[in-house]
Design a protein around this nucleic acid. Structure first.
Length: 276
DNA sequence: AACCAGGCTCTCC
DNA sequence: GGAGAGCATGGT
């Protein structure tokens, strides 16, 4: 992987960085595609990103933030190879998704976003999040920042319903109050099992949503979110519950389980479908 | 018109 | 601890 950097611009050349696959595998909701460029908002930061034969180019006044966001200090070639080595049956999915990188996103934003994601579809999740940001987030020249915890606490259950959250509205008011900076820093120092337990105390957060928060917002690879797509892909006679699927892959892959899960999710949703 | 979407809570056993 | 009902909303 080679990185060339200017003031507000960064170009990454690597076969292990596919911008579209990274953004469109369901880990992030605040991005829009326009004329081949992606416009990404994370927390209170914004960038434009595009990919051509020469690599991925990121433009932002906060380029340091997005170096971390895209985890450009990590070697995904090694992770990719190790997953295939441990779990050869995932080779097709891993090859198809080799350019996927796990983004380092803001934990509070992940809690709120994935509460909304429950029993919902991605276009609608994006719409609800955008409307909440426009309602409560700080206005910037490029749009609206994701609301801070204090800003989220300004919204009522009726507000969240008006913005389309449906029955998740009460979860959002309650979670906004519960997920303080202190709560989140407690998660950082806990092991994954303890962090899971703490997250499950938040209304609207179950095991799957907790795994997503830990994987996308807390950098914990030893997780394995099982949603309806993963059930379709992985339920078998022996692995016949979500918990068994989750344990099976975490036991084998450890901190690489989360990335493997992204390969499978991407393959099931974006690749396999096209060939049928 | 049923069924589904990055499931969760609550109840009952 | 596990099974089942109910849940807002919009797309197919």
């Amino acid at each position: 992987m080679t990185i060339s950097e200017e003031k507000n611009k960064l170009t990454v050349r690597s076969e292990y960085f596919n911008l579209a696959d990274t953004l469109e595998c369901g880990q992030v909701f605040r991005y829009a595609k326009n004329d081949g460029s992606y416009y990404i908002i994370s927390k209170d930061k914004h960038c434009r990103a595009e990919q051509d034969g020469g690599g991925v180019t990121i433009t932002s006044s906060d380029i340091g933030y997005f170096k971390n966001y895209f985890a450009l200090d990590e070697d995904y070639a090694e992770k990719h190879a190790e997953i295939i080595s441990i779990a050869p049956e995932l080779k097709a999915a891993a090859e198809a998704g080799k350019g996927i990188r796990l983004l380092r996103q803001d934990p509070f934003e992940m809690v709120i976003s994935f509460i909304i994601s429950a029993n919902n579809n991605i276009p609608r999740i994006k719409g609800i999040i955008d409307r909440i940001a426009a309602e409560a987030g700080t206005k910037k020249e490029w749009g609206y920042a994701f609301p801070t915890q204090a800003q989220m606490c300004m919204l009522t259950e009726a507000d969240f319903r008006r913005l389309g959250a449906g029955y998740r509205a009460s979860y959002l008011t309650s979670a906004s109050r519960a997920v303080t900076d202190g709560f989140l820093s407690g998660l950082t120092v806990s092991d994954t099992g303890s962090a899971m337990k703490k997250l499950l105390t938040v209304k609207g957060v179950g095991k799957k949503v907790a795994d997503c928060i830990m994987l996308f917002g807390l950098g914990r690879g030893d997780t394995f979110p099982v949603d309806t797509w993963m059930e379709q892909a992985l339920l078998t006679e022996t692995l016949n519950t979500n918990a068994k699927i989750r344990c099976h892959y975490i036991d084998r892959l450890g901190s690489l389980a989360g990335l493997a899960q992204q390969y499978i999710y991407h393959y099931k949703r974006n690749i396999e479908k096209k060939t049928v």
